[in-house]
Design a protein around this nucleic acid. Structure first.
Lengths: 354, 354
DNA sequence: CATTAGCACTCACCTCTACTGAGTGCTAAC
DNA sequence: GTTAGCACTCAGTAGAGGTGAGTGCTAATG
């Protein structure tokens, strides 16, 4: 019988004690003693009994002691058990306290769902304000979004403004350089050609087509086409995938970040976004709420941090991810409800949208 | 004779000592003792003499002691004197070490000067990376920029994408809601009308005109005009003035921010941008580099912070501001050179641009 | 008369010690 | 199986003493 098996077969008493320790510690970040448990979570046993149980839980790696004569503190594995086995009956999580906020939220995002940038900023702001953790949104992969149209307008010098509209609302404008000889009429013809060519394609397909076109003979003798390819090529050169983040400032006030190094760690994790990006990306095609606790993610940047994430859907299919990043000592039940609800709100907003 | 007069008439010795203390303290944030000064900045006096001079400087409020038996530390007033009287002969500031970087910088911004958003991000990034302070850019007041053209494109549902081009490169796109009956042809006519009406106007003048138009009789019977007004009204509703900021993460590594409260203070100052915005705004119409040290700005948020700022010009006239925000214990000479040089680079990029 | 050597003094900082109290593990009794 | 009792551990605090960097003052010096 492996440790995992032992953990899975915890008896009710042990579960109660573990639950008590974790809830208490989440409420107030101080090691929890046996006497304290008997007082605040009375279950008819003396401190000595609780001590025995706690010792068992420590042996299983669910709790640990900061030092010999201190109370117990949950380990990452402890939180994991808490999240998986103690919170799972989701009905027990009280959604009501947030219902009001969420109705309000749903109303607000309804008004701005046309502009994804504004929408996602609103989402991260709301998430972080409500939770005091760091709110994150992974926007839909632009590569998977469907081309709607491109417009080209002459600007100053030899510059042209390219406006790229995608079907789901991702709008991008970019100043590109072209042959200054081109007139607006030329540009219109180029845009028209591109609109026809790329109609209904995803960005991925577009770039693929572009590569093919560039080797096509037709492009060699038709100047207009070769120019169109050039324009398109410039426009599609993206600023890379981005991530909406907010709430670092509020999170800094959490007791978990009273240590300067913890703050640095958190901000570093947020600063070079690709760690988080890679992690969230894994959830982009899944359903439901996921929780990653501390070292569970192999990324060392996230050692003392946990992530609660859920994908949201656009037209039934998973599109992007919303998440909360906080300390491992996180109010998981609260965070899970929030992330879940917000994800649903977004999915719903998208659905009404089409 | 006021204290200020005494300060202005410091003799050479005192100036030398003050200079030594401040330079040393900027180099390493530890109280500077008399013995240390005689060793590292030999000027032919014994520690005792230096002590007497230091006592005088303290009486004038230029230095202070953290506690009785510690060395001296500069006060805000001390830094002020240092900046005004000891650094002013600008020729003494060595520009060379940065010359290389700056050439590089000039080349880089040359490539992106068409897109102000990208440009300003690049500027704050460069400033903060080179200095380890927080780089800030106040973009040109959109209200003062000159209208170039507006384009309207039908999007999904009853939505329209409005693309607003301004003469200096501020480009803004916005999804607005209009009467779904409007065809693309209608939109084109509306845009044409607006382009004619607003040609060469600033945003300020545009809003003004808009108010006037809305009370004009013509608007009442010409449906096209009234729609145009509506569209324009929606488009001009801005997301408010913004501020480009970057470098908080790097600044956190400065010893000045090893105290958690200092970090919180700094991030709070950056978070609600309007304090900084108001401060920088004062410099928007001035020339040259300005330095605000600690409490000199009445804003309590900036107590332990200093700002080195300079306006940059667009077409000869001051347009916006670049700045560095750091601890009062800042390397002012370095910061001043950087801000000054960067401001010049931007001005130059704009000039070549027209 | 400016400068300096000498000296007493101050005070942050470090270390050592002792004490306290919260909490534990173990064992024997219930 | 549960619990009372007890010895033990250890972080945290407070006080005492020593150290050293630095000062202010005064009297001697050139």
């Amino acid at each position: 019988m492996s440790i995992q098996d032992y953990i899975n077969s915890l008896d009710e008493r042990s579960r109660q004690v573990l639950f008590a320790v974790i809830e208490s510690y989440i409420h107030k970040p101080e090691p929890v003693g046996s006497r304290f448990v008997t007082k605040k979570y009375p279950m008819g046993f003396s401190p000595a009994t609780i001590r025995n149980i706690m010792a068992d839980l420590e042996e299983l790696g669910l709790l640990t002691q900061p030092h010999t004569s201190a109370g117990r503190v949950p380990t990452d594995r402890g939180y994991r058990y808490y999240v998986d086995s103690l919170l799972k009956p989701e009905s027990s999580v009280p959604r009501d306290p947030y219902a009001e906020m969420m109705r309000d939220f749903a109303r607000r995002i309804d008004a701005i769902k046309n502009d994804l940038t504004v929408l996602f900023h609103e989402v991260t702001d709301t998430l972080s304000q409500m939770s005091n953790y760091v709110g994150v949104v992974l926007p839909p992969k632009p590569a998977k979004t469907v081309f709607s149209r491109i417009d080209l307008m002459k600007y100053r010098d030899g510059n042209v403004v390219a406006l790229l509209l995608m079907d789901d609302g991702v709008i991008r404008n970019k100043v590109i350089k072209v042959d200054p000889e081109l007139t607006q009429d030329d540009l219109n013809r180029i845009a028209e050609y591109l609109n026809g060519e790329f109609h209904g394609k995803t960005l991925d397909e577009m770039t693929e087509m572009l590569v093919r076109l560039m080797h096509d003979e037709k492009a060699l003798w038709d100047k207009m086409i070769s120019r169109a390819i050039e324009v398109c090529n410039q426009t599609l050169r993206f600023s890379g995938e981005d991530l909406y983040v907010s709430g670092l400032y509020d999170a800094m006030d959490l007791p978990d970040f009273s240590d300067i190094n913890r703050i640095r760690q958190l901000s570093r994790a947020i600063k070079d976004k690709h760690t988080i990006l890679r992690l969230l990306d894994e959830f982009a095609n899944t359903e439901g709420v996921h929780v990653v606790i501390g070292r569970e993610s192999s990324a060392s940047e996230l050692q003392n941090l946990s992530i609660v994430a859920s994908s949201y859907r656009d037209g039934g299919r998973p599109a992007g991810v919303v998440a909360l990043i906080g300390p491992t000592r996180m109010d998981y039940s609260k965070a899970i409800v929030m992330v879940d609800t917000v994800a649903h709100c977004i999915s719903q907003a998208f659905d009404e949208h089409r």
